[in-house]
Structure formats: structure tokens, C-alpha cells
């Protein structure tokens, strides 16, 4: 599904990603961990085509297509979704209008007719249930005045509406209370199919208790320095990152 090769990317002339290699196959869940500032969100933003980041080297293919040649909206239509670490408030744009524009843009891209208002609202109601999003929230402006947890829940609601094949969750668990975490993670699992894949960025094992990763990667200073199974996340929870840094220092000396 996704193949990242020797990816270098920078922002404001500062190199953040320094040669990432990562392959994600259909149906796989990959967890990405690493200290603050390691470059996790940078990688997500590059994947979805944020204009502030410049790719200086390397390639990304998504289902055989050159992802870097696509606009952000085209990547979305191709099936990529990112749950933002910090969702943006858009005063004056209602959730309904926003989602309708998004869903119908994708339908247009796929050569389908736009949904009627009735059909759309029906789908909206169904999907809201998946993450138990309050109807009051979906009647407001996009994220405006939402609490931190409500914003994260709203991200997964949008994911439900857009049915991506590849989802990036950038710290979707942060800001959620214990119950909300379970609801949102359950919602994600309901949306997951054998074909769909995900890159799950988190600092904590608790999310991975619900969303079970096939692989766990550690990003350090712009490189993936360690990859393992689910047990790697448990070990990080236990021991932090210093031992990985130490291992890497030894390796570099060799």
C-alpha cells in the first residue's frame, strides 16, 4: 500500500527527516513512537502533503502512485486520512457544510453523483454513533469551542465519514479521558477492515491496548532506528528511549 524510500524532508530549511524507509502493506497497523520533536508529525504532514514541508530526497508511492506528485486533496481522495495532533478550529464553517463538501468532493473524484441532503444527513447520523459524537457538536462550527477530547473524537468521526484506506492517527489518544479513549479506539476498530492500514503515532501503550499494532517503530532524530513487534511498545513504556539511544550510539561507533 505505502512505500517510503530514503525520505528526507525539511521545514524552513532545517532538515527534520533524514532518510526514512518504511513499507506498510494492506491491512497492517504500524505504531510510530519516539520522543518529542523526533519528527513523527513531520512524517505525517509530509505524507498528507502539507505545503510547509519540503521533500529534498527520496520517494513515496501509494498504491503504485507517486504520492509526492499529488495535491493534498487528491491524496485524500486516494484514501489517505490524517487525524491531526492539533485539529484546527474553523469559525463560521458548520460541520455539516464542511463534511458535505469533503464527502462530495471525494465522490466527484471517484466519478460518483453527489449525495442529496437527505442521504448525507442520514450517513452523518449513522457515523456519529460510531464515536458517540454528540449531535450538538456536529451542528456547530468545525472544532470551534470543542474541548481537547471532543476535537479528537471529531477527527475519528470525520474518518468514519470519509472511509479512508490508510489512516494516520497523530496522537489521537492525547486529551482523551479513559472512557473516551475506549470509545474512540473501538470506533477506529469498527472502521478497520482487512484491506485498510494505519500509522498510529502515540506516546503510550494504553492506546495500543485497544488498537493492536503489527509493528512498532521508533523514530529518533529523523530516522527509524528500531522496529519490532507489539512488545517493543511495552518495553518503551517500561524503560523509555535511553536504551535505544545507547544501542544506536554503540552501533554508530562500530
Amino acid at each position: 500500500m505505502l512505500e517510503i524510500k530514503n525520505l528526507h524532508a525539511s521545514i524552513n530549511g532545517k532538515e527534520i527527516l533524514k532518510g526514512i524507509n518504511l513499507t506498510i502493506n494492506d491491512g497492517e497497523i504500524h505504531a510510530l513512537m519516539g520522543q518529542n520533536g523526533a519528527g513523527k508529525s513531520t512524517l505525517s504532514n509530509v505524507l498528507v502533503g502539507h505545503p510547509a514541508y519540503e521533500v529534498t530526497q527520496g520517494s513515496i508511492t501509494f498504491n503504485g502512485k507517486d504520492l509526492l506528485a499529488l495535491k493534498p486533496e487528491e491524496r485524500s481522495h486516494e484514501g489517505i486520512f490524517m487525524s491531526f495532533q492539533a485539529p484546527v478550529e474553523i469559525p463560521g464553517v458548520s460541520m455539516v457544510n464542511f463534511m458535505r463538501a469533503a464527502v462530495n468532493a471525494k465522490r466527484k473524484y471517484l466519478g460518483k453523483e453527489p449525495l442529496t441532503a437527505g442521504e448525507f444527513l442520514k450517513i452523518m447520523r449513522e457515523k456519529r454513533k460510531i464515536v458517540e459524537l454528540d449531535s450538538k457538536l456536529s451542528n456547530r462550527s468545525v472544532n470551534e469551542g470543542f474541548s481537547g477530547g471532543e476535537k479528537k473524537r471529531n477527527e475519528i468521526f470525520q474518518m468514519a465519514m470519509l472511509e479512508p484506506t490508510f489512516a494516520i492517527l497523530d496522537e489521537t489518544d492525547s486529551g482523551l479521558d479513559v472512557d473516551a479513549l475506549r470509545i474512540v479506539a473501538d470506533g477506529f476498530n469498527k472502521l478497520k477492515t482487512e484491506k485498510t492500514s494505519a500509522l498510529v503515532i502515540t506516546h503510550y501503550q494504553r492506546l495500543l491496548d485497544y488498537i493492536k499494532p503489527d509493528f512498532v517503530h521508533v523514530l529518533l532524530d529523523g530516522n527509524i532506528v528500531k522496529t519490532g513487534g507489539p512488545e517493543l511498545a511495552l518495553e518503551i513504556e517500561d524503560r523509555g528511549f535511553d536504551w535505544i539511544k545507547a544501542e544506536r550510539a554503540v552501533k554508530n561507533e562500530e
Partner: peptide, 19 residues
């Protein structure tokens, strides 16, 4: 906000219009 909307599949022109 423009980028957030584009990530959701809304074209740049349409996103500007919504804002």
C-alpha cells in the same frame, strides 16, 4: 484551516470559498 480542509478532500478553491 485551508490545509485542514484540503486534507479532508476539499479543493483549495473550495476551501477558500468556505472561509
Amino acid at each position: 484551516a485551508l490545509f485542514y480542509m484540503r486534507q479532508r478532500g476539499i479543493s483549495l478553491d473550495e476551501a477558500k470559498l468556505l472561509l
